[in-house]
């Protein structure tokens, strides 16, 4: 069982960072919407506050790791140009997608959208985290601010989900592969 370095980085970018962000974000939307609503019944304890502070910081770190690993590690492999005489485009995913009219839109629409919309996620969640760290439980007393921040968090989720969907489909049609091969496990004979 083996995996290439490029495939591993694509997995780390999409699943470890991006996938975890999506999971965490859905929890944050529920928590902000329910516990921090002005009409919320139970009081917010210092322990709740600390938990959410760590949670939001972790989400922010994940969001930045996702876009930075995508743009500066995986994307250069994706958009690499093949040599003029290249017969096979397997190691050049962008060119491979564009070489077939049936898959070209995965680049011209999918990647073109994904590479930009994904950046709305770290912008939105960084803002939300800083507002939350600054106001803490007092944000309950600023319902308009809380609602606006919640909208940004929801958009960050949508942007990450769009990027995740296109990333998964693009990698399905033209996977980023190549580089050193890592041997994960020795297979047995049956």
């Amino acid at each position: 069982m083996e995996i290439t370095v490029r495939a591993l980085w694509t997995l780390v970018h999409g699943m470890a960072f991006g996938g975890l962000y999506l999971l965490a974000c859905s929890g944050a939307v529920v928590e902000l919407g329910r516990r921090y609503a002005p009409a919320a019944a139970s009081p917010i304890t210092a322990r709740d506050e600390t938990f959410l502070r760590v949670y939001f910081i972790a989400m922010t770190v994940l969001a930045w790791l996702t876009v930075l690993s995508g743009a500066y590690i995986v994307y250069p492999w994706y958009r690499a140009l093949p040599p003029a005489a290249a017969a096979h485009l397997a190691n050049y995913p962008q060119r491979l997608l564009l070489s077939n009219p049936a898959t070209a839109a995965w680049h011209s629409l999918g990647m073109e959208w994904k590479e930009h919309v994904a950046w709305l996620t770290p912008i939105s969640i960084t803002m939300a985290t800083v507002v939350f760290l600054r106001y803490k439980r007092e944000i309950k007393n600023h319902p308009l601010l809380r609602n606006a921040v919640l909208c940004f968090v929801v958009v960050s989720f949508l942007a990450a989900a769009l990027a995740g969907f296109f990333g998964a489909e693009i990698d399905d049609h033209a996977p980023v592969r190549g580089g050193a091969i890592l041997h994960l496990m020795q297979g047995g004979h049956s």
């Binding site: 960084t126 803002m127 800083v130 600054r134 007092e138 007393n141 606006a148 940004f152």
Partner: peptide
């Protein structure tokens, strides 16, 4: 009434 004004939050929102 709260101790923190809404200004810092508004600044963060508009900048984002």
């Amino acid at each position: 009434p709260t101790a923190l004004p809404n200004g810092p939050g508004a600044a963060a929102l508009l900048a984002a």
